[in-house]
Protein backbone atom coordinates (compact mmCIF):
# COMPACT_ATOMS: atom_id res chain seq x y z
CA UNK A 1 0.00 0.00 0.00
CA UNK A 2 1.54 3.26 -1.10
CA UNK A 3 0.23 5.23 1.83
CA UNK A 4 2.11 3.22 4.42
CA UNK A 5 5.37 4.27 2.76
CA UNK A 6 7.26 7.34 3.95
CA UNK A 7 7.30 10.68 2.14
CA UNK A 8 10.41 11.95 0.36
CA UNK A 9 10.87 15.72 0.52
CA UNK A 10 13.37 17.25 -1.90
CA UNK A 11 15.22 20.11 -0.27
CA UNK A 12 15.80 23.51 -1.86
CA UNK A 13 19.31 24.63 -0.97
CA UNK A 14 22.51 26.01 -2.46
CA UNK A 15 24.81 23.30 -1.02
CA UNK A 16 26.05 25.66 1.70
CA UNK A 17 22.70 26.40 3.28
CA UNK A 18 19.12 25.29 3.33
CA UNK A 19 16.65 27.68 1.69
CA UNK A 20 13.88 28.70 4.13
CA UNK A 21 11.17 27.51 1.71
CA UNK A 22 12.26 23.95 2.52
CA UNK A 23 10.96 24.23 6.08
CA UNK A 24 7.62 25.40 4.68
CA UNK A 25 7.42 22.53 2.23
CA UNK A 26 8.21 20.23 5.17
CA UNK A 27 5.00 21.37 6.86
CA UNK A 28 3.05 20.27 3.78
CA UNK A 29 4.99 16.99 3.55
CA UNK A 30 4.22 16.19 7.20
CA UNK A 31 0.52 16.82 6.58
CA UNK A 32 0.48 13.68 4.41
CA UNK A 33 0.77 11.76 7.67
CA UNK A 34 3.72 9.50 6.88
CA UNK A 35 7.30 9.81 8.19
CA UNK A 36 9.28 12.36 6.18
CA UNK A 37 12.73 11.72 4.74
CA UNK A 38 14.56 14.61 3.17
CA UNK A 39 16.81 14.37 0.12
CA UNK A 40 19.65 16.87 -0.20
CA UNK A 41 21.16 16.57 -3.65
CA UNK A 42 24.12 18.60 -4.87
CA UNK A 43 27.87 18.89 -4.78
CA UNK A 44 29.58 19.54 -1.43
CA UNK A 45 26.17 19.80 0.15
CA UNK A 46 26.86 18.35 3.60
CA UNK A 47 26.24 21.71 5.29
CA UNK A 48 22.75 21.88 3.79
CA UNK A 49 22.11 18.27 4.85
CA UNK A 50 23.12 19.09 8.43
CA UNK A 51 20.67 21.99 8.48
CA UNK A 52 17.96 19.72 7.09
CA UNK A 53 18.64 17.12 9.79
CA UNK A 54 17.80 19.65 12.50
CA UNK A 55 14.27 20.34 11.31
CA UNK A 56 11.48 18.98 13.44
CA UNK A 57 9.88 15.84 12.10
CA UNK A 58 12.59 14.83 9.64
CA UNK A 59 13.20 11.11 10.25
CA UNK A 60 16.22 10.77 8.00
CA UNK A 61 18.27 12.86 5.59
CA UNK A 62 19.51 11.33 2.36
CA UNK A 63 22.59 13.07 1.02
CA UNK A 64 23.40 12.58 -2.66
CA UNK A 65 26.67 14.41 -3.02
CA UNK A 66 28.41 14.09 -6.37
CA UNK A 67 29.83 16.22 -9.19
CA UNK A 68 27.02 14.92 -11.40
CA UNK A 69 24.60 16.85 -9.19
CA UNK A 70 26.37 20.21 -9.33
CA UNK A 71 23.84 22.91 -10.21
CA UNK A 72 21.08 20.34 -9.87
CA UNK A 73 20.55 19.82 -13.60
CA UNK A 74 17.12 18.36 -14.23
CA UNK A 75 18.10 15.14 -16.00
CA UNK A 76 20.46 13.55 -13.43
CA UNK A 77 18.47 14.81 -10.44
CA UNK A 78 15.24 13.41 -11.86
CA UNK A 79 16.94 10.07 -12.51
CA UNK A 80 17.98 9.96 -8.86
CA UNK A 81 14.48 10.90 -7.72
CA UNK A 82 12.97 8.11 -9.81
CA UNK A 83 15.44 5.57 -8.43
CA UNK A 84 14.64 6.57 -4.84
CA UNK A 85 10.89 6.87 -5.38
CA UNK A 86 10.39 3.09 -5.20
CA UNK A 87 10.54 3.26 -1.43
CA UNK A 88 8.27 6.24 -0.99
CA UNK A 89 4.57 6.84 -1.18
CA UNK A 90 4.95 10.50 -2.07
CA UNK A 91 7.66 12.69 -3.56
CA UNK A 92 7.27 16.32 -2.55
CA UNK A 93 9.22 19.50 -3.33
CA UNK A 94 8.79 23.24 -3.01
CA UNK A 95 7.72 25.05 -6.22
CA UNK A 96 11.09 26.66 -6.92
CA UNK A 97 12.78 26.99 -10.32
CA UNK A 98 14.88 23.88 -9.66
CA UNK A 99 12.02 21.64 -8.59
CA UNK A 100 9.54 22.99 -11.15
CA UNK A 101 12.04 21.75 -13.72
CA UNK A 102 12.79 18.39 -12.08
CA UNK A 103 9.51 17.17 -10.58
CA UNK A 104 7.45 16.75 -13.75
CA UNK A 105 10.27 14.59 -15.12
CA UNK A 106 10.08 12.38 -12.06
CA UNK A 107 6.30 12.24 -12.35
CA UNK A 108 6.37 11.32 -16.04
CA UNK A 109 8.99 8.60 -15.55
CA UNK A 110 6.87 7.15 -12.72
CA UNK A 111 3.75 7.52 -14.90
CA UNK A 112 2.14 9.72 -12.27
CA UNK A 113 0.21 12.95 -12.84
CA UNK A 114 1.85 15.65 -10.72
CA UNK A 115 -0.19 17.99 -8.56
CA UNK A 116 1.47 21.40 -9.01
CA UNK A 117 1.46 24.22 -6.47
CA UNK A 118 -0.43 22.58 -3.63
CA UNK A 119 -1.83 25.22 -1.25
CA UNK A 120 -3.59 22.83 1.14
CA UNK A 121 -3.34 19.15 1.99
CA UNK A 122 -6.95 18.14 2.63
CA UNK A 123 -6.21 14.42 2.92
CA UNK A 124 -3.20 12.30 1.89
CA UNK A 125 -4.70 12.05 -1.60
CA UNK A 126 -6.74 15.28 -1.76
CA UNK A 127 -5.19 18.65 -2.45
CA UNK A 128 -6.19 22.23 -3.18
CA UNK A 129 -4.36 24.09 -5.91
CA UNK A 130 -4.90 27.44 -7.62
CA UNK A 131 -5.78 27.65 -11.32
CA UNK A 132 -6.34 30.68 -13.58
CA UNK A 133 -3.80 32.84 -11.74
CA UNK A 134 -5.41 32.01 -8.43
CA UNK A 135 -8.86 33.17 -9.52
CA UNK A 136 -10.21 29.71 -8.78
CA UNK A 137 -9.17 26.96 -6.41
CA UNK A 138 -9.41 23.40 -7.57
CA UNK A 139 -9.77 20.51 -5.16
CA UNK A 140 -8.37 17.32 -6.69
CA UNK A 141 -8.06 13.71 -5.68
CA UNK A 142 -4.82 12.19 -6.98
CA UNK A 143 -5.70 8.65 -7.99
CA UNK A 144 -2.18 7.46 -8.83
CA UNK A 145 -0.66 5.16 -6.21
CA UNK A 146 2.33 7.42 -5.73
CA UNK A 147 1.90 11.13 -5.24
CA UNK A 148 4.16 13.69 -6.86
CA UNK A 149 3.51 17.16 -5.45
CA UNK A 150 5.03 20.60 -5.68
CA UNK A 151 4.22 22.93 -2.82
CA UNK A 152 3.37 26.60 -2.98
CA UNK A 153 5.41 27.47 0.06
CA UNK A 154 3.77 30.85 0.69
CA UNK A 155 0.71 28.88 1.81
CA UNK A 156 2.44 26.93 4.59
CA UNK A 157 4.10 28.06 7.82
CA UNK A 158 7.69 26.98 8.35
CA UNK A 159 8.49 23.96 10.52
CA UNK A 160 11.02 24.91 13.17
CA UNK A 161 14.05 23.05 14.42
CA UNK A 162 13.57 20.06 16.68
CA UNK A 163 13.93 20.84 20.37
CA UNK A 164 17.10 19.76 22.09
CA UNK A 165 20.25 18.83 20.28
CA UNK A 166 18.67 15.98 18.36
CA UNK A 167 19.44 15.69 14.66
CA UNK A 168 18.13 13.15 12.20
CA UNK A 169 20.69 10.69 10.84
CA UNK A 170 22.30 11.57 7.50
CA UNK A 171 22.72 8.70 5.07
CA UNK A 172 24.80 8.99 1.93
CA UNK A 173 23.09 7.72 -1.21
CA UNK A 174 24.96 6.66 -4.32
CA UNK A 175 24.30 8.44 -7.59
CA UNK A 176 21.60 6.65 -9.56
CA UNK A 177 22.97 4.57 -12.42
CA UNK A 178 21.29 6.41 -15.25
CA UNK A 179 22.33 9.83 -13.93
CA UNK A 180 25.56 10.15 -15.84
CA UNK A 181 24.11 8.92 -19.12
CA UNK A 182 21.48 11.55 -19.34
CA UNK A 183 23.56 14.30 -17.76
CA UNK A 184 26.10 14.11 -20.53
CA UNK A 185 23.48 15.49 -22.89
CA UNK A 186 23.00 18.71 -20.99
CA UNK A 187 25.75 20.66 -19.33
CA UNK A 188 26.20 23.75 -17.25
CA UNK A 189 27.78 26.72 -19.03
CA UNK A 190 27.49 29.52 -16.51
CA UNK A 191 25.26 31.56 -14.32
CA UNK A 192 24.65 35.14 -13.38
CA UNK A 193 23.36 35.27 -9.84
CA UNK A 194 23.26 38.65 -8.21
CA UNK A 195 24.57 38.59 -4.66
CA UNK A 196 22.30 40.57 -2.41
CA UNK A 197 22.41 41.47 1.22
CA UNK A 198 18.62 41.77 1.21
CA UNK A 199 16.35 38.95 2.29
CA UNK A 200 15.13 36.60 -0.40
CA UNK A 201 11.72 37.42 -1.88
CA UNK A 202 10.09 34.13 -0.93
CA UNK A 203 11.36 34.34 2.65
CA UNK A 204 11.05 38.06 3.36
CA UNK A 205 8.76 39.44 6.06
CA UNK A 206 8.39 42.71 4.15
CA UNK A 207 8.51 43.31 0.40
CA UNK A 208 8.69 46.62 -1.42
CA UNK A 209 7.74 46.27 -5.10
CA UNK A 210 7.95 48.73 -7.95
CA UNK A 211 6.05 48.81 -11.22
CA UNK A 212 6.34 50.39 -14.62
CA UNK A 213 5.81 53.80 -13.04
CA UNK A 214 9.24 53.63 -11.39
CA UNK A 215 10.51 54.49 -14.86
CA UNK A 216 14.13 53.30 -14.84
CA UNK A 217 16.70 51.05 -13.21
CA UNK A 218 18.28 54.20 -11.72
CA UNK A 219 14.98 55.04 -10.04
CA UNK A 220 14.76 51.54 -8.62
CA UNK A 221 18.18 52.14 -7.02
CA UNK A 222 17.46 55.68 -5.93
CA UNK A 223 13.84 55.42 -4.78
CA UNK A 224 12.63 51.83 -4.25
CA UNK A 225 15.72 50.16 -2.80
CA UNK A 226 16.39 52.77 -0.06
CA UNK A 227 12.84 52.30 1.23
CA UNK A 228 13.33 48.54 1.17
CA UNK A 229 16.58 48.87 3.08
CA UNK A 230 15.00 51.16 5.66
CA UNK A 231 12.48 48.37 6.29
CA UNK A 232 14.90 45.45 6.00
CA UNK A 233 12.74 44.33 3.11
CA UNK A 234 13.20 42.37 -0.10
CA UNK A 235 12.59 44.14 -3.41
CA UNK A 236 10.03 42.93 -5.92
CA UNK A 237 8.78 44.15 -9.26
CA UNK A 238 5.91 43.83 -11.70
CA UNK A 239 6.41 42.13 -15.04
CA UNK A 240 6.27 45.49 -16.79
CA UNK A 241 9.19 46.76 -14.71
CA UNK A 242 11.21 43.61 -15.41
CA UNK A 243 10.41 43.58 -19.14
CA UNK A 244 11.52 47.21 -19.36
CA UNK A 245 14.85 46.29 -17.78
CA UNK A 246 14.29 48.32 -14.60
CA UNK A 247 14.62 45.26 -12.38
CA UNK A 248 16.16 41.78 -12.74
CA UNK A 249 13.92 38.88 -13.80
CA UNK A 250 14.07 37.10 -10.47
CA UNK A 251 12.33 40.04 -8.79
CA UNK A 252 9.12 39.44 -10.71
CA UNK A 253 6.14 38.75 -8.48
CA UNK A 254 3.05 37.17 -9.99
CA UNK A 255 1.33 34.27 -11.69
CA UNK A 256 4.44 33.47 -13.68
CA UNK A 257 7.01 34.92 -11.30
CA UNK A 258 7.42 34.43 -7.58
CA UNK A 259 4.47 33.87 -5.29
CA UNK A 260 4.89 35.63 -1.98
CA UNK A 261 2.89 36.14 1.20
CA UNK A 262 4.87 38.46 3.46
CA UNK A 263 3.49 40.27 6.51
CA UNK A 264 3.69 43.53 4.58
CA UNK A 265 3.66 44.08 0.79
CA UNK A 266 4.12 47.62 -0.49
CA UNK A 267 3.17 48.09 -4.16
CA UNK A 268 4.52 51.27 -5.70
CA UNK A 269 3.26 52.36 -9.11
CA UNK A 270 1.78 48.94 -9.86
CA UNK A 271 -1.66 48.84 -11.42
CA UNK A 272 -2.72 45.48 -10.00
CA UNK A 273 -3.27 43.27 -13.04
CA UNK A 274 -4.64 39.83 -12.14
CA UNK A 275 -1.30 38.27 -13.03
CA UNK A 276 0.43 40.46 -10.46
CA UNK A 277 -2.23 39.96 -7.79
CA UNK A 278 -1.83 36.20 -8.25
CA UNK A 279 1.62 36.50 -6.74
CA UNK A 280 0.94 38.68 -3.71
CA UNK A 281 -2.72 38.76 -2.74
CA UNK A 282 -2.20 36.42 0.21
CA UNK A 283 0.10 38.92 1.91
CA UNK A 284 -1.05 39.81 5.39
CA UNK A 285 -1.12 43.58 4.91
CA UNK A 286 -1.01 45.23 1.48
CA UNK A 287 -0.14 48.88 0.90
CA UNK A 288 -0.54 50.53 -2.50
CA UNK A 289 0.69 53.86 -3.75
CA UNK A 290 -0.73 54.81 -7.12
CA UNK A 291 -1.57 58.06 -8.91
CA UNK A 292 -4.79 56.62 -10.24
CA UNK A 293 -7.45 56.18 -7.59
CA UNK A 294 -9.25 53.68 -9.85
CA UNK A 295 -6.21 51.38 -10.07
CA UNK A 296 -7.29 47.78 -9.34
CA UNK A 297 -4.49 47.35 -6.82
CA UNK A 298 -6.61 49.42 -4.38
CA UNK A 299 -9.25 46.67 -4.41
CA UNK A 300 -6.87 44.40 -2.53
CA UNK A 301 -4.93 47.01 -0.55
CA UNK A 302 -5.56 47.43 3.17
CA UNK A 303 -4.05 50.90 3.03
CA UNK A 304 -3.84 53.02 -0.08
CA UNK A 305 -2.33 56.37 -0.87
CA UNK A 306 -3.47 58.09 -4.04
CA UNK A 307 -0.42 60.02 -5.10
CA UNK A 308 2.88 60.24 -6.88
CA UNK A 309 5.28 57.56 -5.68
CA UNK A 310 8.21 59.92 -6.15
CA UNK A 311 6.72 62.17 -3.46
CA UNK A 312 5.21 59.51 -1.21
CA UNK A 313 8.21 57.17 -1.01
CA UNK A 314 10.74 59.68 0.38
CA UNK A 315 8.16 60.88 2.90
CA UNK A 316 7.45 57.30 3.89
CA UNK A 317 11.13 56.63 4.38
CA UNK A 318 11.41 59.64 6.68
CA UNK A 319 8.37 58.57 8.73
CA UNK A 320 9.71 55.03 9.06
CA UNK A 321 13.05 56.34 10.27
CA UNK A 322 11.17 58.44 12.85
CA UNK A 323 9.07 55.48 13.93
CA UNK A 324 12.13 53.29 14.33
CA UNK A 325 14.16 55.95 16.22
Amino acid sequence: MADSLPTLLLAEHDDASLNPVTARALTAAKALGAPVHMLVVGENARAAAEAAAKLDGVAEVLLADAPAYAHRLAEPVAALGVALAKEYGAVVAPSTAVWKSVMPRIAALLDVMQVSDVIAVVAPDIFDRPIYAGNAIQRVRATDGKKVLTIRTASFAATGEATGASSAPIRAVEPAGTAAGNAARSSFVGEDIAASARPELTAARIIVSGGRAVGSAENFHAVIEPLADALGAAVGASRAAVDAGYAPNDWQVGQTGKVVAPDLYIALGISGAIQHLAGMKDSKVIVAVNKDEEAPIFQVADFGIVGDLFEVVPALKTEIAKAKA
Binding site: V115, A136, R139, V140, F298, Q299, F303
Partner: peptide, 17 residues
Protein backbone atom coordinates in the same frame (compact mmCIF):
# COMPACT_ATOMS: atom_id res chain seq x y z
CA UNK B 1 -6.67 13.71 -11.08
CA UNK B 2 -10.31 13.66 -10.10
CA UNK B 3 -11.61 17.20 -9.82
CA UNK B 4 -13.77 17.26 -6.71
CA UNK B 5 -14.73 20.93 -6.77
CA UNK B 6 -13.78 24.35 -8.03
CA UNK B 7 -14.28 27.30 -5.72
CA UNK B 8 -13.67 31.02 -5.44
CA UNK B 9 -10.51 31.94 -3.59
CA UNK B 10 -10.90 33.65 -0.24
CA UNK B 11 -11.62 37.22 -1.23
CA UNK B 12 -9.91 40.37 -0.05
CA UNK B 13 -11.83 43.52 0.48
CA UNK B 14 -10.57 46.99 -0.28
CA UNK B 15 -9.28 48.73 2.83
CA UNK B 16 -8.99 52.43 3.41
CA UNK B 17 -7.26 55.31 1.71
Amino acid sequence: LEILSTSEPAGRTAGIK
